[in-house]
Design a protein around this nucleic acid. Sequence first.
DNA 1: TAAAACTGATTACATTCGTAAACCAAAACC
DNA 2: GGTTTTGGTTTACGAATGTAATCAGTTTTA
Lengths: 128, 128
Amino acid sequence: MNSDEAIPTISDAEWEVMKVLWDTPGLNAPEVHARLQDRRTWKIRTVQTLLGRLVQKGALGFEKNGREYLYHPLYDAETCRRAASNSFITRVFDGRLAPFLATFVESTELSAEEIDELKRLLEEGQEK
Amino acid sequence: MNSDEAIPTISDAEWEVMKVLWDTPGLNAPEVHARLQDRRTWKIRTVQTLLGRLVQKGALGFEKNGREYLYHPLYDAETCRRAASNSFITRVFDGRLAPFLATFVESTELSAEEIDELKRLLEEGQEK
DNA sequence: TAAAACTGATTACATTCGTAAACCAAAACC
DNA sequence: GGTTTTGGTTTACGAATGTAATCAGTTTTA
């Protein structure tokens, strides 16, 4: 499992596909399609296109099993999420996390429980 | 200043332009171009294209001043950042902020000072 | 006042993205 | 074994994006 250097850029639609395969690696195209049913109305062709593009980008690999291809991520979710987060925070918040968090805290989009959870996370991070 | 409903989607390149105009509203194209010099090597034509697209999208407005156009944001930065953040967190983290923050806390990308600042932010939010 | 310089409008062009249809090969079924 | 089904490959096509060049009008300057 690769984990550094040149993490491919994953588009909006492609994220959905990646999430399925992080959850369950080794699916073929119809299986990935099936698992997307509840969230996306994509045709199987669309899913295959996305799978193909992700393979080209180096985000997914596959093994042939008879005539079918079993796809699996080449980067773990954590690594990709971090790369995407860094890129987002850089672009929108000039790399500063505090204003980002402030955005959420100030709007009412965080429950008290979530705030507690986030504080706990920060405290854990601080101890290390 | 508009602040809700149908906030336009702003592309990567367009964010740079918006930031300049949030910082100093009422600039014309050459002035925006000048302020981007240190960060981007765009030609003035490129900047003009981005300005035009942002006007089309309804993210910017302008007044004519003689033959020049003075551009200004139609949404405040806070509103646009919030919309972008929500969209990002939904796409990459399925709408859950905690895993997002965990990503940063676990990597060494936060200094102790930043963690303190974030905790303070959360506490302030909690009191309201 | 004709040319140069400045400012914006129109047009361009390759890449990526979202969304597939058409086509082809293998496997299963009749 | 020919036909249907299944799974993958190639091709498509419009919208958005990054990155401008060319064209045109206005103002300044020689």
